Measured scan of single mutants.
Amino acid sequence: KFNKELSVAGREIVTLPNLNDPQKKAFIFSLWDDPSQSANLLAEAKKLNDAQAPK
């Protein structure tokens, strides 16, 4: 279960257009550290992506 959630969340995070590479890497490392938090980490990444969207 975690492997699928981890890969789905990881793929989504790397495609978020408004995150820079260090931010993406930080989220990916957090996913590896605790795969059970993949849904929460993906939600946080999406929030940050939205907040950094060009206005």
Score class of each variant (00 low, 15 high):
residue 51 A to H: 07
residue 52 Q to M: 06
residue 1 K to E: 14
residue 6 L to E: 04
residue 32 W to F: 11
residue 47 K to D: 06
residue 37 Q to C: 07
residue 13 I to L: 04
residue 38 S to M: 14
residue 28 I to Y: 02
residue 24 K to R: 07
residue 40 N to G: 07
residue 34 D to A: 05
residue 54 P to F: 07
residue 40 N to L: 13
residue 55 K to Q: 14
residue 43 A to T: 09
residue 23 Q to T: 04
residue 43 A to I: 10
residue 17 P to F: 03
residue 31 L to T: 02
residue 42 L to H: 01
residue 2 F to Y: 11
residue 41 L to Q: 01
residue 20 N to Q: 06
residue 32 W to R: 04
residue 28 I to L: 12
residue 45 A to C: 03
residue 12 E to N: 04
residue 10 G to K: 10
residue 48 L to R: 04
residue 20 N to F: 08
residue 43 A to S: 07
residue 44 E to P: 00
residue 55 K to Y: 12
residue 48 L to M: 06
residue 23 Q to N: 02
residue 29 F to I: 12
residue 17 P to I: 06
residue 20 N to K: 10
residue 17 P to Q: 06
residue 17 P to K: 09
residue 22 P to V: 14
residue 39 A to R: 06
residue 46 K to D: 02
residue 2 F to M: 10
residue 25 K to C: 14
residue 55 K to T: 11
residue 16 L to P: 00
residue 21 D to M: 12
residue 47 K to H: 06
residue 14 V to S: 11
residue 55 K to P: 14
residue 26 A to V: 06
residue 48 L to G: 01
residue 42 L to T: 03
residue 42 L to Y: 02
residue 29 F to E: 12
residue 4 K to S: 11
residue 8 V to G: 08
residue 53 A to Y: 06
residue 25 K to A: 09
residue 27 F to A: 00
residue 19 L to F: 00
residue 22 P to R: 15
residue 26 A to C: 10
residue 35 P to N: 03
residue 52 Q to N: 04
residue 38 S to Q: 07
residue 14 V to F: 12
residue 26 A to K: 11
residue 15 T to Q: 14
residue 3 N to I: 13
residue 20 N to S: 15
residue 22 P to N: 15
residue 20 N to P: 02
residue 53 A to E: 10
residue 41 L to M: 04
residue 31 L to D: 02
residue 51 A to E: 11
residue 24 K to F: 03
residue 23 Q to P: 01
residue 2 F to V: 10
residue 12 E to Q: 08
residue 24 K to E: 02
residue 15 T to W: 10
residue 21 D to H: 06
residue 41 L to R: 02
residue 25 K to L: 14
residue 40 N to E: 13
residue 31 L to M: 10
residue 43 A to Q: 10
residue 13 I to K: 00
residue 52 Q to C: 06
residue 41 L to E: 00
residue 36 S to L: 06
residue 30 S to I: 09
residue 17 P to D: 04
residue 37 Q to K: 08
residue 13 I to C: 03
residue 27 F to K: 00
residue 25 K to Q: 12
residue 20 N to R: 09
residue 8 V to M: 11
residue 30 S to M: 15
residue 16 L to N: 02
residue 48 L to Q: 03
residue 50 D to T: 07
residue 30 S to G: 08
residue 22 P to W: 15
residue 20 N to T: 15
residue 3 N to E: 13
residue 29 F to Y: 12
residue 26 A to G: 08
residue 27 F to W: 01
residue 26 A to L: 09
residue 39 A to D: 10
residue 52 Q to G: 04
residue 15 T to I: 07
residue 47 K to F: 07
residue 23 Q to L: 03
residue 9 A to D: 03
residue 35 P to D: 02
residue 4 K to C: 14
residue 3 N to Y: 13
residue 48 L to T: 04
residue 4 K to G: 10
residue 4 K to V: 14
residue 7 S to G: 10
residue 34 D to L: 03
residue 48 L to D: 02
residue 46 K to F: 06
residue 27 F to G: 00
residue 2 F to A: 05
residue 33 D to P: 00
residue 45 A to Q: 00
residue 14 V to Q: 12
residue 36 S to C: 05
residue 22 P to K: 15
residue 43 A to G: 04
residue 23 Q to K: 02
residue 47 K to Y: 05
residue 18 N to R: 00
residue 41 L to T: 07
residue 25 K to Y: 14
residue 42 L to I: 10
residue 49 N to Y: 00
residue 21 D to A: 11
residue 10 G to P: 00
residue 45 A to M: 01
residue 32 W to A: 07
residue 6 L to S: 06
residue 41 L to W: 03
residue 20 N to L: 09
residue 39 A to F: 07
residue 54 P to Q: 09
residue 19 L to T: 00
residue 42 L to R: 03
residue 6 L to V: 11
residue 50 D to I: 10
residue 6 L to M: 10
residue 10 G to W: 15
residue 43 A to E: 10
residue 19 L to V: 01
residue 14 V to I: 14
residue 24 K to A: 02
residue 45 A to E: 00
residue 26 A to P: 04
residue 50 D to A: 11
residue 21 D to C: 15
residue 42 L to A: 02
residue 35 P to G: 02
residue 14 V to A: 08
residue 16 L to C: 02
residue 33 D to N: 13
residue 33 D to R: 10
residue 40 N to D: 09
residue 31 L to F: 02
residue 30 S to W: 14
residue 44 E to C: 12
residue 7 S to W: 15
residue 23 Q to H: 01
residue 30 S to L: 15
residue 4 K to N: 09
residue 49 N to L: 00
residue 37 Q to M: 07
residue 39 A to Y: 06
residue 6 L to F: 07
residue 38 S to D: 05
residue 11 R to T: 08
residue 41 L to S: 01
residue 51 A to N: 06
residue 36 S to N: 07
residue 7 S to K: 07
residue 34 D to K: 07
residue 51 A to L: 12
residue 21 D to G: 13
residue 17 P to T: 08
residue 3 N to L: 13
residue 33 D to H: 13
residue 36 S to P: 04
residue 27 F to I: 03
residue 10 G to D: 05
residue 3 N to D: 13
residue 19 L to E: 00
residue 5 E to P: 10
residue 45 A to H: 01
residue 29 F to S: 13
residue 19 L to M: 02
residue 48 L to N: 03
residue 29 F to K: 14
residue 42 L to M: 05
residue 4 K to P: 11
residue 41 L to D: 00
residue 34 D to M: 05
residue 18 N to G: 00
residue 9 A to I: 15
residue 40 N to M: 10
residue 16 L to R: 01
residue 18 N to Y: 15
residue 51 A to D: 07
residue 25 K to I: 14
residue 47 K to L: 09
residue 5 E to G: 08
residue 54 P to M: 09
residue 48 L to H: 02
residue 32 W to V: 07
residue 8 V to W: 14
residue 50 D to P: 00
residue 41 L to C: 06
residue 30 S to A: 14
residue 7 S to L: 14
residue 32 W to H: 07
residue 18 N to F: 15
residue 6 L to W: 09
residue 38 S to C: 09
residue 39 A to W: 07
residue 11 R to L: 13
residue 5 E to D: 11
residue 55 K to R: 07
residue 54 P to S: 08
residue 23 Q to V: 03
residue 5 E to T: 09
residue 44 E to L: 10
residue 11 R to W: 15
residue 40 N to I: 11
residue 46 K to W: 06
residue 46 K to Q: 10
residue 42 L to S: 01
residue 27 F to Y: 08
residue 6 L to P: 05
residue 21 D to Y: 13
residue 46 K to M: 09
residue 18 N to T: 01
residue 17 P to C: 10
residue 19 L to C: 02
residue 22 P to L: 15
residue 14 V to Y: 13
residue 5 E to Q: 09
residue 43 A to H: 06
residue 11 R to N: 08
residue 4 K to E: 13
